Simulated scan of single mutants.
Amino acid sequence: MNTKQQAIFSKVPEVTLVFWIIKIFATTLGETGGDAVSMSMRLGYLLSTGIFAAIFMVAVIVQIAAKKFHPVIYWTTIIATTTVGTTLADFADRSLGIGYAGGTAILFTLLMASLFIWYRALGTIAVDSVSSPKSEMYYWITIMFSQTLGTALGDWTADTAGLGYGGGAIVFGAMLAIIAVAYYRTRISHTVLFWAAFILTRPLGAVVGDFLDKPISKGGLALSRYSASATLVALIVIAIFMFSHKPAKQGH
């Protein structure tokens, strides 16, 4: 399949600066939106997880059924993974009593297993290879694990490790900056660096989201989860429609 054909059938976006900006907005929205439903609406973690999981399944089905890349469908699916990841991680950490460290360890193992199985099955985990229903299934399962892991990791860093929301944001922001430097200045696999960055944007979004809506007494700004979520949705919509979004091309 040549580059032009791959571009037509690719179902995921080209990785650009706009991609990462929207990704961080989406992960932050996952935290505020997930907390809005589970906490502000008082639906609890389990019921909220069920609601978001159903939305996620519908979004994935629509995404896979689509004949070509659609930015709105793709980012809707990403947002669905961040919200269900938030409530699922909170359910495991708090309701089941696994704790942030235990939840992080379990989810990291599941994520690595997902990437390993994907690689063994298709021979690559590169984003530009996601152009078939089978590769998309591996892609979205892996993303689901990464989003859930990110929530647990962000909470563990901010709460258990005692760095707070600001400290957690600095740590994850610095790690992403190091990955960016490695991308341009080293020969480390760009696929490995992509997944490292993709995973780390989730805990960054988690601590930023918590910083926005948690009480001032706990180091947050105490903003309304509803207004914070609505603002993030507006920013994502603006970014989607203001900038050009192309499907990933083979070999890029």
Rank of each mutant, 00 (worst) to 15 (best):
A158W: 03
G209K: 03
L107V: 00
F116I: 12
W156R: 01
T160Q: 15
I78K: 03
T142M: 10
G205T: 08
G123V: 11
W195C: 06
G123D: 10
A66N: 14
T104Y: 07
A158S: 08
Y138S: 06
R120Q: 14
M144N: 13
A169I: 14
P71M: 04
L163G: 06
V84W: 08
T201N: 01
V84I: 12
S129F: 10
G99C: 10
Y138I: 01
F108H: 00
V192Q: 09
V72P: 08
W195G: 07
A169P: 12
R185A: 11
I178R: 09
Y74K: 14
V181D: 01
T86R: 09
L107I: 02
Y139W: 03
V127H: 11
D90C: 07
L176A: 01
S114G: 10
M112C: 11
V127P: 05
Y183G: 05
P71T: 02
V72F: 14
S132D: 03
T148I: 00
L115D: 04
F211G: 05
I117K: 11
I125S: 12
S146L: 01
R202M: 04
G167W: 05
S146Q: 06
P133E: 11
A174M: 07
T77V: 13
G209H: 00
A174Q: 02
I170N: 06
Y100R: 14
W156Q: 05
I143W: 01
T87G: 05
T160E: 15
T142V: 10
D159F: 10
G154D: 08
A158F: 02
G85M: 10
T160V: 15
P71C: 03
G123M: 11
G85V: 07
A161N: 11
S189A: 06
Y165I: 05
M112E: 08
L107Q: 09
I143A: 10
A101P: 00
F172W: 10
R120F: 00
G205Y: 04
V192R: 07
V127R: 12
A206F: 08
A177S: 09
R187N: 14
P133T: 10
A66P: 07
I98S: 12
P71Q: 00
F69A: 01
I125Q: 13
A121I: 15
D159Y: 11
W140T: 03
A196M: 10
T151V: 00
V72E: 13
F194A: 04
S129L: 01
